[in-house]
């Protein structure tokens, strides 16, 4: 194996270790504490919505008009009819394909 390729392998291993540390770190930190302060608990409760929103909002704003419309339609229909995530995915995909291949 040439040294440059070996460097890539080391890079992947380092990325894997870094990722594993993030996945185990929170557990280790929180089990060391005697009691969870209420504000920390409120913060933890906010984690999923806060994090996942950052993966949604920029795509909605910068993803292009077709992506914005597809996301909006999928959101509105899924909210109105209380649909599962998978159905919402299908709606978003259908709308974006319609815009790209039929409308435009």
């Amino acid at each position: 194996m040439d040294p440059q390729h070996l460097n890539l392998i080391y890079l992947i291993i380092a990325a894997a270790v870094a990722t594993f540390l993030t996945r185990v770190g929170g557990y280790i930190l929180i089990t060391q504490m005697k009691q969870i302060p209420p504000r920390l608990e409120a913060a933890l409760n906010a984690v999923p919505a806060a994090v996942l929103t950052t993966l949604v909002a920029p795509a909605f704003v910068y993803g292009g008009l077709d992506v914005t419309i597809a996301m909006f339609v999928a959101f509105a229909i899924a909210l109105g009819l209380n649909l599962s995530t998978l159905r919402m995915l299908v709606i978003g995909w259908v709308v974006v394909m319609l815009i790209r291949h039929v409308v435009m």
Binding site: P48, A49, L52, T53, L55, V56, A59, F60, G63, D66, V67, A70, M71, A74, F75, A78, L79, S84, T85, M88, L89, G92, W93, V96, M97, R100
Partner: peptide, 16 residues
């Protein structure tokens, strides 16, 4: 083939 729209819609479903 519309792959780019799937990830944001999927995460949007999780947020909801």
């Amino acid at each position: 083939i519309g792959l780019d729209v799937l990830l944001p819609v999927y995460f949007m479903g999780l947020v909801m």
